[in-house]
Design a protein around this nucleic acid. Structure first.
Lengths: 171, 171
DNA sequence: TCGCGAATAGACCGATTGGTCTAGAGACTT
DNA sequence: AAGTCTCTAGACCAATCGGTCTATTCGCGA
């Protein structure tokens, strides 16, 4: 979805319908046929799409991992590479969902997506032998590290911090 | 500055000049007298103002602290209280600066502000006896934890995570 | 009391915003 | 071949956007 990129790089209110449509080579009519509620529907869909990509990234990182730290580290490295490729823009969810017009709906969706990421990490942690409690704590902690690290990386326009996220003190 | 609040809660593109002016009870003329470049100047100023508030918060947290962990913990608690008061909106810098029109200028300002926060924490860490290297690492790490924790708190509309940020694993 | 610069006040502007609506193209069934 | 859907295409709209401009008021030194 090209819309997802637009939303991610410029934020919900930062993109106009005109840009969205031009970028997707689609006229207004098509948009409002597929997304009756227009821009907001599109934003929700773009966020879900971005979230699925992230879930795949998590799975790919943990699938061949021997330990939780192992998987977490390769996830950080993958994200660093992604950061370099896309050119330091925000977490797609935050950019797309935390500004929307219908706050309740958007916030619910954002929370659901974030919890989905944490749950995915949690499952891998549990599979790798961690206790339920430890898995929960580590998954949440990893989310925080990545989210915060990404902010700093963005401000510095450098993915370096992302790569040192795990080592520093054993997750 | 009331403008800072608006920018924080709705993002740079989310607020219109009309809202800004109505909220500040000032007409267009005054704005463009004090801020020749209009909205963007205002945003920069609002960000600086918000940053100063944060610096004060950091100083207040570490001033009476016996150890780094001590100061860091009270900072997290202060932020949690702030979170509850303001009603879960973004980091003011991110909301205001990471969407602006003149990207280079805005990004430079954002980086400068963030580094200022880290430097402030760093100084307190050094004062409390940490080595230069340790102080740097801990300051950076605390920034990441807070930034990431705040994101999660926002998604969950609950300040709980912020309070557990330090304890979990000794910073 | 006058004069002058700083600041306020808001009418006004073209461009752009998100959204609606009508017309027609395309594909599929019968 | 006719009829009936889904979907595309874009003209069009009121509202709002950020910004400019002129007129007026305010504060203060002379």
């Amino acid at each position: 979805m090209s819309a997802a990129t637009l939303f991610r790089t410029r934020g919900y209110h930062g993109v106009g319908l005109a840009d969205l449509l031009a970028d997707a080579n689609a006229p207004k009519g098509s948009l409002y046929h597929h997304f009756p509620n227009g821009k907001s529907d599109l934003a929700l869909a773009a966020a879900t799409w971005a979230s699925d990509e992230m879930l795949r990234l998590i799975a790919a990182s943990f699938d061949g991992a021997d330990s939780f730290e192992d998987g977490a580290t390769t996830l950080c490295y993958k994200l660093a590479k992604l950061f370099d490729l896309t050119g330091w823009d925000t977490c797609p969810i935050a950019a797309t969902l935390f500004e929307g017009p219908d706050n309740t709906l958007f916030r619910d969706h954002a929370e659901h997506i974030y919890e989905g990421w944490i749950a995915e990490v949690h499952d891998h942690a549990a599979r790798l032998g961690l206790s339920e409690e430890a898995a929960h704590a580590k998954a949440e902690h990893l989310f925080i590290l990545i989210q915060g690290g990404w902010s700093l990386a963005r401000a510095r326009r450098s993915s370096d911090i992302l790569r040192g996220l795990i080592k520093r003190n054993d997750t």
